[in-house]
Amino acid sequence: MYSFSPFNRLIKAAVLSVAFFMSADVALAQPFKKLVWSDEFNGTGLPDANKWGYDTAMGCPKICGWGNNELQYYTHKNTRNVRQENGMLVVEAHKEKMGNAQYTSARIVTKNKGDWKYGRIEVRAKLPAGRGMWPAIWMLPTDAKYGGWPHSGEIDIMENVGYWPDSVLATVHTNAFNGMKGTQKTKGLNFKDLSTAFHVYSIEWDATKIRFYVDDQLCNEFKNTGKGKDEWPFDQRFHLLINIAVGGNWGGAKGVDDSIFPQKMFVDYVRVYQ
């Protein structure tokens, strides 16, 4: 999610390959049993400030795109864009002007409030729909021990783009494997109801591998090659991000349909086990 200029070209090629998708169910290992952090979103108003902070587009003078040429302005503590409601977290994108952007949305983060090295991270969510949507559930390093992106890594638990509505992708970025080089490690699965039903998006991460699941079906696996931090920077703390981007290099590859707004992502819960 962080920077995907050449990522768009790789994804277009991947769409043409049926082999890109894994259709077989794979048993979940489930080595992580102890619940160490969770949010069930049973409150009202803004998300729990003890668990969530905000990435905002404040101070972005021209394009509020976080390196991806996205079109939204991520707001700060605005219940129009993020709130707890009916036992759910709601992230909502609107067609409205703010600053230099024509759209608003939210990007909430657990940085320094929920940071983990290894474990099972699972998020039950229902996605927005429509051309131009780019929802993501993902992780970034809290301490950036090995330097700025992509040196310290990125874990994309779930990404979807609205013009490709039946597909979810799971991706790893490192210094050796990343979107700037077109070498990121990506695989995906097909579902027909991503915007009408809830699915559980999760990873199981230890010192040897990261496995990505959708409803306990294996989506991707990235193994520690033992060749060092350029290929495996995942021996440090990471935190969670949840957001809806609008447009951008990948999400906006086929434009944005302004008739679809507002669009919402619903999150039933976030649970972390170790």
Results as ranks from 00 to 15, higher is better:
Pro141Ser: 07
Glu204Met: 02
Asn190Pro: 12
Arg80Phe: 11
Glu40Cys: 13
Arg131Asp: 12
Phe198Ile: 02
Ala93His: 04
Val91Pro: 03
Gly188Tyr: 00
Phe20Glu: 15
Gly59Arg: 05
Pro150Met: 09
Leu240Tyr: 02
Gly119Glu: 00
Leu240Cys: 00
Trp250Tyr: 11
Met265His: 06
Lys95Ala: 14
Arg120Ala: 01
His94Tyr: 12
Trp116Gly: 02
Cys219His: 09
Lys12Glu: 15
Gly247Tyr: 11
Phe177His: 15
Asp156Ser: 04
Val168Met: 15
Gly251Pro: 03
Thr225Gln: 12
Thr142His: 08
Ile242Arg: 02
Val200Trp: 00
Glu154Phe: 01
Lys111Gly: 01
Gly67Tyr: 07
His151Pro: 07
Ile242Gln: 02
Phe198Trp: 06
Trp164His: 11
Trp164Ser: 10
Ala101Leu: 06
Ala136Cys: 08
Val256Ser: 02
Ile108Ala: 07
Asn69Arg: 15
Ser23Thr: 12
Asn81Ala: 06
Ala57Met: 07
Leu169Gln: 12
Glu96Ile: 06
Tyr54Pro: 05
Ser5Ile: 14
Trp134Tyr: 09
Arg9Met: 10
Lys185Glu: 07
Val91Phe: 01
Val26Ser: 12
Ala125Glu: 00
Phe238Gly: 04
Asn86Cys: 00
Met1Glu: 13
Ser17Arg: 13
Glu70Phe: 04
Lys145Gly: 09
Lys181Asn: 04
Val18Gly: 15
Arg107Ser: 12
Tyr213Pro: 02
Val168Tyr: 13
Trp250Glu: 08
His151Gln: 14
Thr79Val: 15
Lys126Gln: 04
Lys62Thr: 15
Ala207Pro: 09
Asn175Lys: 14
Val267Cys: 03
Arg9Tyr: 13
Glu40Lys: 11
Ile155Val: 08
Asn86Asp: 10
Asn50Thr: 13
Ala14Ser: 14
Lys223Ile: 14
Asn100His: 14
Phe20Ala: 15
Pro31Leu: 07
Val36Thr: 07
Val82Gly: 03
Thr44Leu: 06
Gln236Glu: 13
Ser195Thr: 00
Asp39Met: 00
